[in-house]
Amino acid sequence: MTTAPTLQATPPVAANDRSGSIANPRIRLYKKRIAIKHPDPQAGERLLAEALGAVDRDALHGILKQLAKASAIGHRPDEANLAFMISTIKRIAPSDSIESMLAAQMVCVHMAAMRSACRLACTDNLAQQESITRALTRLTRTFAAQIEALGRHRGNDERAITVRNLSVQDGGKAIVGHVTQHANVLVAEAGPSEARQEAGR
């Protein structure tokens, strides 16, 4: 006789889980409300707020409602999808409101991409395959751009600029070495010839 496995709250997957060993409180979705399942409601809200990077109660419930709508399967919010989305955002570890919103968008784009991939695998219609492939391509490119945006935000928009071709007019000077721009400040590392010139002055 085969019995269905009992579903339980998901424990941390690995011992090196940097986001903490406490599992997220589970969310119950009702017709007109969202309930946080935790023995201590305040502690449950606090744990979820930390996981989602929400700065206050309004931000927490606002983002939960948005994620619940995005978790829908057949127009009905899905608790398993919502749990996955919350767990993924927790691993991204948003530290402010911008990161919180961006992380939420990232998981929503990922969910949409996976739905598109499922539709692509389930259709033999050539026109539908082309349409779904275009949508999937846009979604995966958007996801990659979101990763870049998160990295730039966390690095305070520090981007290295490499100059490959350089032209110096008569009377001009060139820096021989590596030039990096961080937050609109130019930092130059002098090369060997430049360092010898500076030492001779």
Rank of each mutant, 00 (worst) to 15 (best):
L102I: 05
G200N: 09
K31G: 11
G151I: 05
F143Q: 07
Q42L: 15
A149D: 01
L67N: 02
D157G: 03
G53L: 12
R141A: 13
R201I: 04
E189W: 00
R28M: 15
I36R: 06
S19A: 14
A54G: 07
A43H: 11
N16K: 06
G74R: 15
E79S: 06
T162V: 12
M111I: 04
Q197H: 04
H153S: 02
A121W: 05
P5M: 13
A121T: 06
A144E: 09
R119N: 09
L47K: 03
R134L: 00
A135H: 12
L64D: 03
A4V: 09
R91D: 04
A160I: 10
A103F: 08
Q105I: 02
A135P: 05
V176C: 03
N184T: 11
G171Q: 04
T142C: 12
V55A: 14
R18I: 12
I36A: 11
L60G: 05
S19P: 03
V187N: 11
G20V: 10
L7M: 12
A68K: 06
V176P: 01
R57S: 15
H178A: 07
G151N: 07
H75N: 14
G200A: 13
Y30Q: 15
L102A: 13
L67Y: 01
N125M: 05
T137I: 00
D56W: 14
R119A: 11
P11F: 14
A195E: 11
G172H: 01
A43G: 01
I34G: 11
M85L: 12
L120K: 01
Q66H: 12
D157Y: 02
R28S: 10
D40H: 15
A188M: 07
S21A: 15
A113Q: 08
L82C: 10
Q181F: 03
I92V: 10
R201V: 06
A68T: 09
R196L: 12
P25C: 03
R33V: 04
R76K: 13
R138A: 12
S100I: 08
T6Y: 08
H110V: 03
T140I: 00
E79F: 05
H178M: 07
A127T: 06
P12W: 08
E189H: 09
P77C: 05
V109K: 03
V179Q: 02
D78H: 09
D58I: 14
I73Y: 08
L29T: 04
I34Q: 10
A43Q: 15
T88R: 12
L82H: 02
D56Q: 14
I22S: 15
L60R: 00
S21Q: 15
I73N: 10
G155V: 02
H153F: 04
A188P: 01
I98A: 12
D96R: 10
R159P: 00
G200P: 00
